[in-house]
Every structure is written in structure tokens, then in C-alpha cells.
Design a binder for these strands. Structure first.
Lengths: 250, 250
DNA sequence: GACCGTAAAAGAACCCTGTTCATTTACGAG
DNA sequence: CTCGTAAATGAACAGGGTTCTTTTACGGTC
């Protein structure tokens, strides 16, 4: 089961069992020296990293695991990526790049914010193990993320928000988004109190929520995200009104 | 440099240079076998772990580092702690235990929530490196955290919130708190766009905020937390009113 | 009081990381 | 044709967590 019919070639059959997952490519059997055809690229490495995270969890982002998956020795990766930290940052960019911002061009600021937040969270939610991995990382400079921020800030400023308030608002909203993504990544029954008699109100509320969710078929994390997002936007609109803001002339 | 001049003495003076930080205790020089006086305890290990995280960052929570700090071989730790994962969970409990909840006994639900959220965030903020480490961890069952939840839920239910809504609301607020703590842990200039000409609105807003913060002397993350918290509470109060809720009779 | 199971330490290994280095080979420009 | 450079292998290294054996001390029992 573990030794997959090694080809009886006379050459040294190295690079055989580096990881415990069977490599999809049967046996690259590359000999030493620069290969005729390019084997790796930064892009390929990052995408393989993301795929392995999805398939095997956060544990799958190891240099050796990625190398093994690509049929390559670990040291080969360092010709394209500086190290593991940069690799993870690259994967983050890969995901961030998919967050849509087109709603800011067509919808009013508050509706656009709601759509953006939802899409933002869902994009990370599509790769649960990455959330804990990526949420804690500082943003790389010169990142595409800055362009996403540009779109958001620009829309808010056009709606009348002072630049400083717009930035603060966006950061607050993003904090909620990332926190919600973490909550989503955690197990559903994470805060199940279990059969305890010392936390009656908590236990009762938990059971009650379980009933509601079973009836509606939704996820607990989704309900919390929707409630929080709704409350945040209500608060933002109140602030908008209290400041007497109006959309700028264009 | 790597082979540290082993002393030619006949006596085995081991446990000398395990880490690169000088241990505060000069040299325990303990010989093999069970010591006369207890050296370790679960509590001592956890507190040392927290202290090392504070002093050296998230990197300081290694088993070998803690052992070295305590003047002990790494394997000795396993007599008191199952492994690193349990250790980190223990440190989390250590911190969570300090989150105050007394405001729920004396203040109305919305003011209490605000005070709790602020204290919650500040408690984690007192140990910045821990945030990324602990925020991603699932809660241990039977944890003291459940009692904190009990207090919060109980107060909300007494205020008239249905149990299910109370729980959802608390999870939403906690998501915001943890997200804000992550934001706080990140570097202050984390999303500095730098001298880029392709993100004008973002750059302008960033510069404007820098001016405001310089004048007020506050931190960026604090402003975002306060704005978001205020907005959330406004939204929660609106929901409370829309549902026609009233405090329960006691 | 001698005995014995158990607790708690040292110490030595094991395996798995990320990373670096020397080596080998191919490509591409002058 | 030659030479510098890019891109792979292969062999290390340092440093993690963890486990296993050994040694010693404690605490209860006949």
C-alpha cells in the first residue's frame, strides 16, 4: 500500500517517499542539474500551497509537503520563494485577490459595504484552514490589498465621509469580518457548554439556538455575522446622519 | 560557535546552555532522579509560558524554552502538561480568567456590554503576541470561559432578549472584539500604502488619520475599536427597540 | 521498619521541520 | 564557443516536539 510499484530503472530511485500522501504524478525521477523544461514557478508553488491547505488543513503548508506534492526536493522551492513566511503571504494575496469590489461602483455606500463584507468573509470562508493562518499576518507592502482599500475608501469619501473617518470605519468593519471568519473556522460546537448545571442561562440559550438553526438549516456563525453586520451598518448610518454628511458633487 | 566547550570535569554538570537566554537562576545543577523538593507544577509552567510570550513574543512558548527558563529538561514538563497544545490552551485560560464581568450586575445591558467588550479587548491587548496564538484556538470544554458567557447571557436575558438572540449577539460582539485584538497586535503602520500613486484616496485618508492621531495622541486601533463598538451598540439598541423588548420581571 | 507502587526528575534518543550549501546541469547572451 | 546565471538535486545542519528509559524520592501498607 505504501510502496507504489517503483519503476525498475537502474538509476537511483530517490525522491520516492518523502511525504505520507501519495503524489499524483507517479514518479518525476528527475536527475540532478537544471531541467530542460521548467518544473517550478512562483505561481505554481503558491497555488499548490493553497490547494494543500484546502485538502489537508493548515498543516499542509509545509515546505516539504509542497515540494513532495510537486515532485521536487524542498531546496528547489527556494529558487522561487524566499521562505515559508513569504510563501504564506503569497497565498494570502492569492485569496485576497478574489475579493470583489465592484459593488462600490453601483450601489450606495452602505449597501456596498454590506455586500463587500459578506463577499470578503465568504472568500476566506471558502478556505477555512487558511483563516487562522492568514488573519494573523501583517499585510505585505505593495500588495493588491491596497487597491481593494482604495476602492472602499474612495467610495466612502465620495459619499461624504471624511477620509480619516472612512479609514477608521473600514478598519472597524474589517476587524469584524476577520473575527467572524475566525469564528466560522472554529468548530460549530466550539462553545457547547455540554451537560453543566452551573451555567443555566448559557445552556438554555445554546439549546434554544440549536433548535432555531435546525429549523432554518443555517449555520450559527452565519447568523452571528448577519446580526453583527446589520447592527454595524445601522450604527454607521446613524453616525452618517449625526454628522450631517451628504454625497460629494462629482 | 555551536559546540559549547564541554567542561572536562568528571561530574556531569549538565543543563547548562540549553537556550540562548541566560536563565535567571544561576545553575540548578539537579542530579537525576526525583528531587526532594517539588520543582514544577502545572500552574508554574503555564505562568512561565505566559511570561515568556510577553518577554520574547509568540516564539517563546516552546517546550524547550520554558524548560530552560525553569532550569529543567524538556521531558520533565510532560509530567504536568500533556503537550504544547494543552499548554497554549492553559495560557489562554490564564488570560481569559482575568476578564471582568462585574459590570453586568450593576449596569444596564448595553452599557455593560460596552464595558465588557472594552475590558475583554484590553485584557488580550496586555499580551500582544498571545492574540494571534490564542484567537485561533478552539475553547476547551469545561473552561472558565463558559462562566463568563453565562454572566453575559444571563444579563441579556434578564434585559428581555430571547436566549437565542442573546447568544447570537454575544458571538457577533466577540467576533468584533477578537478581530480588533488582532488588529491591535498587528503593527501600527501595517497598512501604510507608502509612496504609491495608484491609491490616491487611500493614501490621502491614511495621511489624514495620521494627522488626527498625532494631534490626539491615540492609537489607530483604538479609534477603530471605539467607532465599531459604538456602531454595534447603536445597532443592538435599534434591534432591541424594534423587537419591542422590555426587561423581565425578576 | 522494610517493602513497593508511583511520582517526578534527568538524559538520550527519535522524527519532523525549515533552511543552507555545494554540486550538477541547462539556458542564453556576447 | 564561452561564460555567467538559473534551476534543479542531494547532503547536510539546527532546532523544534515528543517519547522512552533510567534514576531517585515520596507515601502508604504489611
Amino acid at each position: 500500500m505504501s510502496t507504489p510499484a517503483k519503476t525498475p530503472a537502474p538509476g537511483p530511485e530517490t525522491a520516492e517517499r518523502t511525504g505520507q500522501h501519495a503524489p499524483p504524478v507517479p514518479a518525476p525521477k528527475r536527475r540532478v542539474g537544471r531541467p530542460t523544461k521548467r518544473v517550478l514557478s512562483r505561481r505554481l508553488i503558491l497555488e499548490t500551497g493553497l490547494r494543500l491547505i484546502d485538502e489537508r488543513g493548515a498543516h499542509g503548508v509545509g515546505m516539504r509537503a509542497i515540494a513532495s506534492e510537486l515532485g521536487v526536493r524542498p531546496s528547489a522551492l527556494y529558487n522561487h520563494v524566499a521562505g515559508q513566511a513569504e510563501l504564506i503571504a503569497g497565498v494570502r494575496e492569492l485569496i485576497s485577490d478574489r475579493i470583489a469590489t465592484d459593488m462600490f461602483a453601483s450601489e450606495p455606500w452602505d449597501a456596498a459595504l454590506a455586500g463587500w463584507a459578506t463577499h470578503y468573509r465568504n472568500t476566506f470562508a471558502a478556505h477555512p484552514p487558511t483563516i487562522a493562518l492568514l488573519a494573523t499576518l501583517p499585510l505585505a507592502e505593495e500588495s493588491v490589498t491596497s487597491q481593494m482599500y482604495e476602492t472602499v475608501i474612495d467610495a466612502l469619501v465620495r459619499a461624504g465621509w471624511p477620509g480619516e473617518r472612512a479609514l477608521t470605519l473600514m478598519v472597524a468593519l474589517e476587524s469584524f469580518i476577520l473575527g467572524s471568519a475566525l469564528d466560522l473556522a472554529a468548530d460549530d460546537g466550539m462553545l457547547d457548554p455540554g451537560p453543566r448545571r452551573d451555567v443555566p442561562a448559557f445552556s438554555a440559550a445554546y439549546a434554544e439556538r440549536a433548535g432555531v438553526l435546525a429549523a432554518s438549516g443555517g449555520r450559527a456563525a452565519d447568523a452571528a455575522f448577519e446580526l453583527g453586520l446589520r447592527a454595524l451598518l445601522t450604527g454607521f448610518r446613524a453616525e452618517y446622519a449625526a454628522l450631517g454628511l451628504r454625497p460629494r458633487e462629482r
